[in-house]
């Protein structure tokens, strides 16, 4: 579509009109950032294009594929369907914040490596963020059927589902045994 108002540009369509800009604070991976944004900026675009955190991916941009999944206050959410302003004051974790500072991988990252739980990798950040929230959620059982149901909002175009399931169960065993 040619209509400039419909593209995914972060920021206002009229650069001279700054009347509706708002300043918000986002806490991402333990670090607080102050951003001046238009009200219609979604969290995914703020992360990728303002904070250069490009781990969360834009797949469908409509909450259907899960590639943009981040964890907010312990809950996995589609960052493409969330206004950045709504995440102010909340604890946002992206794939960049999963490993320890010394580079030690999170158990889910290690398990994805060991189980070859990806092919092209585009959905992988979203898969792992969804998986970490499941591993911390007492309401979700860790049998194969329950994991598949809980992760049905993460689409893998390559079809690596079997290895993803193996990785999530393996990470669960690692964490339980720790």
């Amino acid at each position: 579509m040619a209509d400039a108002t419909l593209d995914a540009t972060v920021g206002h369509v009229d650069p001279d009109d700054t009347s509706s800009l708002q300043t918000i604070e986002l806490t991402v991976n333990g670090q607080t950032h102050t951003l001046t944004l238009e009200p219609n900026v979604v969290l995914l675009d703020a992360l990728r294009e303002r904070l250069n955190l490009t781990g969360a991916k834009k797949g469908c941009d409509h909450g259907q594929c899960g590639a943009c999944t981040v964890v907010i206050d312990g809950r996995a959410m589609n960052s493409c369907l969330l206004l950045a302003a709504l995440a102010e004051g909340q604890d946002i974790t992206t794939i960049e914040g999963l490993a320890d500072e010394d580079g030690t991988l999170h158990p889910i990252q290690q398990a994805f490596l060991e189980h070859d739980a990806y092919q092209c990798g585009y959905c992988t950040a979203g898969q792992m963020m969804m998986a970490t929230s499941i591993l911390n959620d007492k309401d979700i059982a860790k049998d194969p059927a329950s994991i598949k149901e809980a992760m049905s909002g993460n689409i893998c175009r390559c079809g690596a589902y079997k290895n993803i399931l193996d990785a999530v169960q393996s990470a669960h065993r690692t964490i339980e045994g720790a």
Partner: peptide, 25 residues
Amino acid sequence: LAGGTTLLDLAKIDIMQPEQVVDIN
């Protein structure tokens, strides 16, 4: 605006075109 999962989906495809969003969170 509550969760926004319908509103933002439909605003992105221009089916909903609010001039103002009133966040009720």
